[in-house]
Nucleic acid binder design. Structure first.
Lengths: 224, 224
DNA sequence: ATTAAATTTTATGTTGCATAAAATCTACAT
DNA sequence: ATGTAGATTTTATGCAACATAAAATTTAAT
């Protein structure tokens, strides 16, 4: 009869492998957070993670793959913020969204910043991806616009999709300026809130607009 | 008496130098327009321009310098569009600004796109630079907002600087999506116009707002 | 303890940017 | 016409970073 062949420790190995992989990714995260995208090299990563470069290739893949992992991780965390609280009014929605985001980013600002830069450079935020963060965020914006219309805050003179596009766009440009180091986190919050609320103001009822503009001017003046 | 020393042909040499330099830059422009930022290497540039890599270093500088020259050239051309026509009303101003920009970019779309990507990657659009394109564009937006207020199109319930910031931001995010290949030139125009006009609508008088919203919905629906 | 498979490392290749030093060219003065 | 100083280009080389084939080592089940 054919003897049983040794199998190697498959399950245990797999677990170890995952652990080592995680160590490498954590180290990568630290490098990116510390010195930004440009200082990140496989050689340094290997060094700090106490492995060699080919090991990184073996466990994770090429440089691009390593970066992709980090961005996916970042996006997953960010997406949790997207599940917004129940809608009451645009001002509350926008403000709580902004504050949730700030709470998240404040923890590890350098990393989030760098991860967004990497995601942009590696083209990981394509608008097309149905499952991507772009589509998800846009859908959230659409829902808020829709609710705002339903609850009588808006006249409905502007196409809901158009309004949602602009609300989201105003959030993105503020993030863009933050992630490129043009503005700090506080300024990001300011511009995001002002941009989104100003967009709502364009179609707000005459009753609701003053509250929006009031809030906008108040946020704009904060810390001046 | 000390004999006159040979001087070398200084003036003629300088002229030739400029001509060769221009040839290299034009070639670089072609490469960038053709294959984008990532395909651009000094070796290929040297090859296509019929010089060697050190010559490029000698005449222009390192890779970053070459790219910078291209971007400066692009910005100069773009800035000419910024000297807007005389103000009459926000809709006309925004539309003619958009059309001027489109006319410029349509000529050599691939190059302009690539140049913006390069400028971003080489950090040439810093917000801080007083003489930079950011400050100039923002100033233009401010002037238009100011005129709009003076001419009675706006209520003046929103701080002019805040309004200008948002008008400009809406233009930038549309450009961003275009230069990264997410949207085409026609969509860039659409989003730019809708974004800017919607911003004006937030503070528009009740008399003027319908015209704005009408225009916005019309532009949004174009080509659907 | 043995063993087969998984894993890591050594050694090497490739590409791209950069520059020192040698070779060449250029335009003027005679 | 030709020599020459100085400008310009090229040859030769170095360096840094990513990538991978093949050899050496480790691992866990038997």
């Amino acid at each position: 009869m054919k003897p049983m062949r040794a199998q190697g420790g498959v399950a245990a190995r797999t677990a170890n492998k995952l652990k080592r992989k995680q160590t490498i990714l954590d180290t990568a995260r630290g490098i990116i957070a510390g010195g930004g995208y440009s200082t990140f090299t496989l050689a340094e990563l290997a060094n700090l993670a106490n492995v060699t470069v080919p090991t990184i290739h073996n466990l994770i893949g090429n440089k691009s793959e390593v970066l992709k992992q980090l961005v996916v991780d970042m996006v997953e965390r960010t997406e949790q913020v997207l599940f917004a609280d129940k809608f009451s009014d645009p001002i509350t929605s926008v403000e709580s969204f902004a504050d949730n985001l700030m709470d998240l980013y404040r923890n590890d600002e350098a990393f989030y910043k760098a991860a967004f830069v990497v995601g942009e450079q590696e083209s990981l935020f394509e608008h097309g991806h149905a499952a991507g963060i772009f589509k998800k965020s846009l859908k959230l914006a659409f829902n808020v616009c829709n609710e705002a219309k339903t609850h009588g805050f808006l006249n409905g003179d502007v196409d809901t999709q158009l309004l949602a596009d602009r609300v989201f766009a105003n959030q993105r440009i503020a993030r863009y300026d933050w992630m490129h180091g043009y503005i700090n986190l506080a300024e990001y919050r300011k511009q995001m809130i002002c941009g989104m609320l100003l967009t709502f103001a364009s179609d707000a009822t005459n009753d609701y607009r003053p509250a929006l503009l009031n809030k906008i001017n108040q946020v704009f003046a904060e810390g001046e």
